[in-house]
Amino acid sequence: MLEELRNAVISGADKKAEEFVRQALAEGKEPIFLMNEGLIPAMEEVGERFNHKEYFVPEVLLSARAMKAGLALLRPLLTEQKFQPVGLVVLGTVQGDLHDIGKNIVGMVLEGAGFQVQDLGADVPPDKFVNAVKESGAQILGMSALLTTTRTVMATVVKKLKEQGIRPGVRIMVGGAAVSDDYARKIEADAFAKDALEAVAKARELTVRR
């Protein structure tokens, strides 16, 4: 059963993934078990395949959608059981930049790894990031930038978070073609990740280190 659920996610079959989760729940399987042993390892496998160029963006998007279909059934049950998501991530692409493919993949893989993700979309103004962090109490703020001309928006967000005294409460993670480890350090972000798998690893580190 778990094997089938994982395969449904890996092959991007959203209807099947949903059906397997439904069946497993009907058979009395624990939601947390289906999450940890089904959806999460499946998305890890998808991330691996992407890194090894066996999967490309469309395949990852299909898998992520299948994962979400399963997650949609589990989420209310997990909340009911007071199961805490690993952490809450506010995510978006910075103002002036409409590249959202990479950001979406990162968001979905993070969800697949048990994080809760609040996706603000693309072309997000600094204040919107700041307010979302403030209102949600997110542990992690993830920002994506693919254009060197607009990556400076990230620095603006960091500055605003400081000014409003909320910088200490949130870990900042950045990514996208216009940023690097060096750049992340320069704007005083806490982490940079070059791809979605690394984003999960770093996000886990950042939530543990708090």
Binding site: P58, L62, R65
Partner: peptide, 10 residues
């Protein structure tokens, strides 16, 4: 849209 188009391919 890139995401919807990706789904349509399949």
């Amino acid at each position: 849209g890139v995401e919807p188009l990706s789904f349509l391919l399949y």
